[in-house]
Amino acid sequence: MSADLIPVSQKQALTKKDFQSDQDVRWCPGCGDYAILAQVQKLMPELGIPRHDIVFISGIGCSSRFPYYMNTYGMHSIHGRAPAFATGLKASRPELSVWVVTGDGDGLSIGGNHMIHTLRRNVDLKILLFNNRIYGLTKGQYSPTSELGKKTKSTPYGSVDAPFSPAQLALGAGSTFVARSVDVEPPHLLSTLRAAATHKGSAFVEIYQNCNVFNDGAYSYMTEKAVKADAQLVLEPGKPLVFGKAKDKAIRMNAKLQPEVFTLGKDGDLSQAIVHDPTNETLAWMLAHLAPPHFPTPIGVFRSVERPAYDALMNDQEKDVLAKKGKGDLQKLLNAGETWVVK
């Protein structure tokens, strides 16, 4: 259908500004979403994909207003279902670059089912999950990533509802690309988004995002200038897991096959540190379990592996059947089975 209609994508000299729509951005002043929008708009011209071949699809929530601000095709759909809308679009129009923007409530609570099945299928979608650990649009109820004991409007005595980790969930669902970044780390966010964009298959990016109105400072334990070098573990393929202000801390596996932090030059040397490899499945699992207070928070690409994308498989199968059976003849189909003539 469309393949003939659409001119071959050429690298076009677009700028960040070309991806800004004419709509006023209406997030609260100081919202982390602004920073994410800026990085996505900055990345887009780099990809060399014409604006008209890009589609942003979202669900419901603060993050889901995102498509309105992108000068591409877009759909602001219903709560939690964005991955399902995107799957239908991508399967039927595999040549498009399709992005999903969602949040911790949208993508993990009401839409948890669609999220895991989309990742399991490895639909070639770029999924950005803004995790602010709160329901912002409904004015401050706890979410599936809110910490135990959290006091919110719906948990005045503290939440007794155990949270889960989006990265662990994505790995468990078989996502071929799992990454984490932070709204206040623009260069890191940009490079993570770039890696996701070039991944073939489902790319799941959890973005720690500050809601300065209903959950301010949710990530200050790892974003504040004074602590971030010790609290963040920046994952870089081929490089050892080293962190700390003085780059003197590293992570190794102990004799019980548990990760442990050690001080370089004191408890051991660099050769003992684990070297990051996003194709190492076991390592990805281990990294997704690293969390404060005993460990720094890893950011970067946890896993990046190759597996055929669902939309490609669907279209390949269609081509195979066509090659084998030839283009279907409607008359023959209608006349199939046993027929008889009445005169």
């Binding site: 259908m1 469309s2 589609v55 699809i57 759909m75 759909s77 219903i78 279902r81 399902a84 809308f85 995107a86 799957t87 239908g88 679009l89 991508k90 399967a91 039927s92 129009r93 498009l96 089912n113 669609h114 099945h117 669907m314 199968q317 269609e318 059947v321 066509l322 059976k325 030839g326 283009k327 279907g328 409607l330 189909l333």
Partner: peptide, 27 residues
Amino acid sequence: KNYGVMTFQAEDEIAGIASAIGASFGG
């Protein structure tokens, strides 16, 4: 499949219709 038909067995009823709407958006 050789009659220009694509079928998607979705994870639930909602994804069934949602995927269809996505495909309709795509033409």
